[in-house]
Amino acid sequence: MTGRFHKMHGLGNDFVVIDARVDAVAMTVSRARAIADRCTGIGCDQLIMVEPSDSADATMRIWNHDGSEVEACGNAMRALAVLIGKATLATKGGNVQIAPDDSGATVEIGAPRFGWQDIPLAYAMDTAAMPVGWEQLESPMAVNVGNPHVVFFVEDLDAVDVERLGPQIETDALFPQRINVNIAQMVDAGHIQLRTWERGAGLTLACGTGACATAVAAIRSRKATGPVEVAMTGGTLTIDWRDGEPIRMTGPATHVFTGEADWSRFGA
């Protein structure tokens, strides 16, 4: 059960990456949670598995820190571009194109979806300006960019208690599969400041799909024009999108080290 892993990060959003095409390991919710534990495991926000695929160059599977398997992770997609090179990846959120470049990597994650069933929401409503709110956070836009997001635009990002409100919104009954929560402040038409409460991982230094969802929401509501610079605690991503086209995300990703682990020590 001993195999190799790579520790990587995208703007501080960190991953344990296992290339199961080379070092196969049976992954379960409990094992993923144990590996991600920062005190007794290797420690990461997300565990990433690269597996064989019949429809793409490889399959990308993603487990959050809490052991839940999710559809997409933008920062990890850039990390895989650095690790394995240009490729088409099959994910639970759809196929994506990844390629390393001078900035780190560029990823095309497909076109966003806005239907209430696509998010999904518990019942029908306008996803461009949802008639709901949590304290000062009101009328968000919902968008699926391979995984589900809500985006709130506020005047003062620092005035929002993201760590308190984030988990309340994430687990609200309106979102049957939970939700990623993005709080954004427009700087100007080409720059956004963002903090993201990530479903299953909590407050993160950076969220690639969150940056994509927020840029799409800003462009769709005419607050911004692409390309948009999205600044997060861990750094900045460039996001570009036109209606009917895939979202393009560009930014850094870093390989930190390669290690070996006995996976049997992390349970079954």
Rank of each mutant, 00 (worst) to 15 (best):
V151Q: 11
V29N: 11
L203E: 14
N75A: 08
A211T: 05
E163I: 13
D172N: 14
P120Q: 10
G93I: 11
L157D: 05
P112L: 01
P167C: 08
C39K: 13
A253F: 04
R61I: 04
G200W: 04
H6Y: 13
I169P: 04
P167K: 01
L174K: 01
G41L: 02
W197A: 02
C212T: 06
E69S: 07
T209H: 04
G235N: 01
Q185S: 10
L203N: 12
A81M: 04
I109M: 15
W263R: 07
V22D: 14
K223S: 13
D188S: 10
L165M: 15
G133W: 02
G235E: 00
A26E: 14
T238P: 06
G234M: 00
A206E: 02
G67H: 02
R178C: 12
V82L: 08
S68M: 10
V107C: 06
D243H: 11
F153Q: 05
M125H: 09
F152G: 01
S68A: 15
W263Y: 14
I35H: 01
N13Q: 08
G3I: 12
G133Q: 06
S53C: 08
L83H: 06
V230A: 07
A201H: 02
M130L: 12
A268K: 12
D101W: 09
L137V: 09
D14K: 05
R265A: 15
D188T: 11
V143D: 03
Q168I: 13
Q136Y: 08
T250P: 07
G85A: 07
A128M: 12
P246G: 07
D19W: 03
S55W: 05
P100E: 00
P100V: 09
T214V: 06
D262R: 12
V96F: 09
G190N: 14
G85P: 07
G110Q: 00
T2C: 13
D243I: 11
A142D: 06
M60L: 07
C39I: 11
